[in-house]
């Protein structure tokens, strides 16, 4: 077990180097010299040279690459170009509102989707199953933007049930602010989740061991909740755990629309002000979190499936 984890941990190194390489190529090679943009038209060559030095852009390319790699381990991303703030500081502040929104939304939508998909799997092929399947696909076909615009307009602006925008720190003060975006998140994720869970569960229902369970005299409900679900949990765990990194990234659009000062909002602000280091930091941070959680999902996998041998 420990050996497996260590091997899997060692594999993180080439992947992290690869991620750093992509980000380095994008921002340090393709993007070109940012000093002209930063200093404006009237900058002297001397000023530009100084800034380059300050940003570490005069170093040889390999050294610049090492800087990117280092930031992936130390989380020291330098300062923002627009606000001049320490980026790691900004990220720490932004994480709180983002997680306040995404964690409850994620937990509720996952549990709800699982319950719905077990229900439709039980009634597979019947009217209710077809209806739910159609709703999932139809729901997924509406743009996320349309949901947000409509819900915000109708429930917050027209009916006044929720706050239109903003955020307050501390529980329970933030609840009225995150309630509507959380609902929208749930509506947005139920479609794809139910669709995936249902497929996985149905794949299992047609296996031979289910026939054995029936021959034993177990009830359909018992078979579904014990035998089928336990096997279906294996792919479901992977699917769910792999989504967790996106919680850290925050709900980009939701935070933007509802003016929640989370990581998503920070990303979009940086995008509008061409604040490269912030985008770079977000890309690295989200990749690192993704890599860590895919490791966790692999380890959980070995608990869920006794067939996986730990070498």
């Amino acid at each position: 077990m420990t050996r497996y984890i260590i091997r899997r941990l060692l594999y993180l190194i080439p992947v992290l180097l690869g991620v750093s390489l992509i980000i380095f190529v994008l921002f340090n090679v393709v993007a070109g010299d940012p000093t002209a943009v930063l200093l404006g038209k009237n900058a002297t060559p001397r000023q530009m040279q100084e800034l380059r030095e300050q940003l570490g852009l005069n170093k040889p390319l390999f050294a610049q690459y090492l800087d990117v790699v280092r930031s992936a381990f130390t989380f020291d991303f330098g300062r923002s170009w627009s606000s001049k703030q320490e980026i790691s500081q900004m990220l720490r502040q932004g994480a709180y509102p983002s997680l306040c929104l995404t964690i409850p939304a994620f937990v509720i939508s996952t549990v709800l989707s699982l319950v719905i998909s077990l229900g439709v799997a039980f009634y597979r092929g019947k009217g209710i199953d077809l209806f739910v399947r159609f709703c999932c696909i139809a729901g997924m076909s509406v743009s996320a933007l349309a949901y947000i615009l409509f819900f915000q307009y109708f429930f917050a602006f027209k009916l006044g049930w929720f706050e239109i925008s903003g955020f307050e720190f501390g529980f329970p003060d933030f609840v009225p602010f995150i309630a509507l975006p959380a609902i929208i998140w749930i509506v947005l994720s139920i479609g794809p989740d139910v669709r995936f869970f249902r497929t996985v569960i149905l794949d299992e229902i047609y296996q031979d061991y289910v026939r054995t369970a029936r021959a034993k005299g177990l009830s359909e409900m018992h078979i579904l909740l014990k035998h089928v679900l336990r096997n279906a949990m294996i792919p479901i765990i992977t699917y769910v755990v792999i989504q967790i990194p996106f919680l850290i990234l925050g709900a980009l659009l939701l935070e933007n629309f509802f003016s929640i000062p989370g990581l998503g909002g920070i990303t979009l602000n940086a995008l509008n002000s061409s604040d490269f280091p912030v985008i770079k930091a977000m890309a690295i941070l989200s990749s690192v979190v993704y890599i860590v959680f895919s490791l966790i999902s692999d380890i959980l996998y070995t608990f869920a499936d006794p067939r996986v041998k730990l070498k």
Binding site: G18, I22, I23, L249, T267, A283, S286, I291
Partner: peptide, 8 residues
Amino acid sequence: SSIPNIML
């Protein structure tokens, strides 16, 4: 695939 799509 380690870099979340939206960030890339």
